[in-house]
Structures are given as structure tokens and as C-alpha cells.
Amino acid sequence: MQCSYFDAGVCRSCTLLAVPYDEQLAGKERHCHELLAAYPDLEWLPAVASREGGYRNKVKMVVGGTVEHPRLGILDADGHGVDLQRCGLSGPGLQAALPALAAFITRARLTPYDVPARRGELKYLLLTESPDAELMLRFVLRTDESVPRIRKHLPALLAELPQLQVVSVNLHPQHKAVLEGEQELLLTERSTLTMRINDIALHLRPQSFFQTNTEIAAALYRQGRAWVEELAPASVWDLYSGVGGFALHSAAPARDVVGIETSREAVASAVLSSRQAGLDARFVAGDATAFALTTAAPELVIVNPPRRGIGPDLCAWLDASDVRHVVYSSCKAESLARDLAAMPSLVPRRARVLDMFPQTHHYEVMVLLERDAARAA
């Protein structure tokens, strides 16, 4: 993939851009195999490749520059904005919308936040595109001072971008390295973006997390569903369930499926998706480990944790529990390897690398674990 930003040295976020894609994918497989070398009987399924570019369904654009000339992209070493509106990783619908959003910043007089000076209002634009080419936009602001101006000019923006269906403001008053604050102000009648993944419509609320690469997310959920259907458990937990992707793909008649997620916004999204799809799955807002430690174990557990992994307490519970199988979806193979080592009673049987993040060293890996019969006896 060719990138003028990379060639000019303006942005080096895509650390593998100079490496041919086949070599990138082979290197990720090799890296994962090395980390899981302690399991020589592990069956490796073929890796799932991604499109090299245009795969991102969302962009998180730092807003720099000035009201008259805003820059949407990243910050340089001095904390000033670098414009990346034509980033080749972004889906074409996202790229097409960004010039209109830059013009809106000028029209609504939204002052970009100056990080070194700690002044200004608009910190980020967060833009997400659905498989149906609909958009969700979030303005991350320091205060609510400019909200009236956003409301005033929003009808013109919606007329210019009819694919823009959900718009909100996130208030993030602190000066610290986190993307958003707790308070969200919805500015449109619609409150969710519909992500049609495989045969399920997932409803995404503004503060809900969804995978960056829609096609690979769909493959991830198909693999999880295939393993669950093969094993046919009577009960399933989806820990760190997010908007319910794994849980809803696992739902079946006479199967008890429960999703556990700390984000109440994500839980609300999952409940809506389950209800509208007519699927029998329950969702609970809470801590995954705390839930596991106080609830009777199911036959199968799906875990899809953040990069830090599931941690020693949940590992210890799973290792000592009656859970027969675990489906572990990991975005960091190093923490996966550490967690697997802490659960010796559960043996990795199959694994698959899915390239969620082409042009970078990051990838997703799924592992199917089975309780060791000898240890169980």
C-alpha cells in the first residue's frame, strides 16, 4: 500500500507499511506460533487475511490547527496537529465525510484544543461507518460552551451528509491522555448505529466499543459461533461481551447465554440487539471476574478481554472450575500466552490468527481450550 504521509515522514503509525502484506501476515503467524510454542499439539487453522487498506470502520481524529484551518489527524512531537484526512487505512465513506466536517468546524467556530497551551474546545472527532454506509459522529469537547453552535449548524451538516445518522457530544474536561469523558449529549433522534455483521444487526451506541475492522470482526464472530455450535454447550458466558457480538452469535434455542460487560452503554446496545433479533441472550453490567467468582459455572466461557488479558484471578477461577471449554479471543498474544500458562487444566486445542490491523504489528488470535480429562479426573 502506498501512503504519501508515510513517504514524507509525516506519519509513521503504520510501522509495517514498507513490508509486503504476505510477509506481514506470515510474520504475525510466526510471532504467535513462537509465543504458544509450549503447546506442540495445538492445531493451527489458516490465518484470516484482511484488506491492506480502507479497512478501518472508524477514525479517531485529533483536531489541531485553527478555526479557519483545522487539521484532522494526529499530533506531532510538539503537540501540534498533523492533517491525515486522506489516510489510506480509513474506509472511503469516512474519507469522503472528513472535508465536510473540517468545514463544519470553521462554520460553527469550534476552536481546536491546543494541547501544549491547554486551551481551546474541540479535542477529537470520532467517526464510525456501518456496513450500510451510515455514519455516527462524536464531538469530544472540553466544555459545553460550543454545544449551542453545534446544534445551530447541525441541520446543514445533516443535509450535506445524509448518511450521518447519529451525532453526539462527549464532554472531556480533563487534560489527560484519555480519549473521552463520561458525559455524552445526544444531538440526533437516532441513538444507535446499526452494524450488520453476518446475520445479526448489532446496535452501537456512541460510547460502545466495536472492532476497528468490520470484515475481520465478522470472521471472528463466525469462528466463535462455529466452535460453539460444534461443542453444543447448554450454557455459555461471554465475558467482556462489549455490544454482544460473541453472545448473540452463540445464542440458540434451549441454550443459556449470558454476556457480562462493565460498560452500561455497551450492555444497553446488546440488550437492544438481542430484543430486535429475537435472540435468547441476557446481558449484565458488571465486572467479569467478580461475576465468575460468585456464579455457578457454565459449560463454555468466551473471553474477549482488553490487551492486558483476563488476569490472575479469573485465570485461577477458570483453571479450578467445571468449565469444559474456553474460547479466548485476544488482541495481544503476549498476555494470552501468560494467561494460558496460568490455566494448566485447560489445554489449547486449536488456534487462528486474524489480521485485524494490517500495516501494524498488531493482530487478533483466537484459541479453543479444552479441559484436560486427566486433570479433571
Rank of each mutant, 00 (worst) to 15 (best):
G64L: 04
R149L: 11
G53M: 11
P112R: 01
E121I: 13
E160H: 09
V63I: 11
Q85A: 12
L94H: 05
R56C: 07
R151M: 06
V147I: 15
R151G: 01
T111D: 06
P148Q: 10
D132C: 00
G54Y: 12
A117C: 07
L101W: 08
L157Y: 05
R118Y: 08
R71H: 08
A133C: 06
L98Q: 13
P112M: 09
L122A: 07
H69M: 04
R142V: 13
D144T: 15
K152T: 04
Y124F: 15
L101P: 10
N57W: 00
A117I: 06
S130K: 07
R109M: 08
K152N: 05
L125A: 10
L137G: 06
S130G: 04
R56Y: 02
G93Q: 10
L98G: 01
L161S: 08
P148I: 10
R151H: 02
P92C: 00
Y113D: 04
T111V: 14
G64F: 02
A77M: 11
I150V: 09
E129N: 01
Q95F: 01
L75C: 00
E129L: 08
R138S: 15
E145H: 13
A108T: 06
T106M: 04
P155Y: 05
G79H: 11
L158G: 02
G88E: 13
D83C: 10
N57A: 01
P116Q: 04
R51C: 07
A97N: 10
E121F: 13
N57G: 14
L72C: 05
D144W: 00
P131F: 08
G64P: 05
T128D: 02
D132N: 07
F139C: 08
V62N: 03
G53N: 10
L75Y: 12
S50V: 03
R107M: 01
Q85R: 14
R86E: 15
G93W: 01
S50T: 03
E145N: 09
E52S: 15
L157Q: 04
R119K: 13
L110W: 11
R138G: 03
V140D: 10
